[in-house]
């Protein structure tokens, strides 16, 4: 199964992220998403839970989330677990591992 990574830095791209994720899953790709900086604001988007269900792996940068004003320990977004409150190393893992990659 080919792997498809999406690196998200922008809070305005939820429609694109959802569209690409669903299209890639329909083609049998394994989809991994990492949200950082203002992209972590999407963790509060009403569609975020649906995105977590659609993708195979979703993680966010806990440090960025904190900088956006949220508590990464006590306010874990719905759809994620504590271990998915991650670091930039997750971006490294996506780049290491994925056949296809895009930034949004």
């Amino acid at each position: 199964m080919a792997k498809f990574g999406i690196f998200v830095t922008n809070a305005k791209n939820m429609a694109h992220i959802m569209g690409v994720t669903k299209a890639a899953k329909a083609k049998g790709e394994y989809v991994k998403i990492f949200l950082t900086w203002k992209g972590t604001l999407l963790a509060k988007d009403p569609q975020f839970r649906e995105l977590c269900n659609a993708a195979d792996e979703v993680a966010i940068c806990a440090d960025s989330y904190k900088k956006m004003g949220y508590d990464p320990q006590n306010d874990i977004p719905e759809g994620l677990t504590e271990k998915e409150m991650s670091t930039q190393a997750k971006h490294g893992y996506i780049i290491d591992d994925d056949d296809n990659y895009m930034t949004l």
Partner: peptide, 18 residues
């Protein structure tokens, strides 16, 4: 801050051995 955080992400990938 957008630019400065991009530099933090740059460093993050360095630390991840890229």
């Amino acid at each position: 801050k957008d630019s400065l955080d991009a530099l933090r992400s740059t460093l993050g990938l360095s630390v991840a051995n890229h």
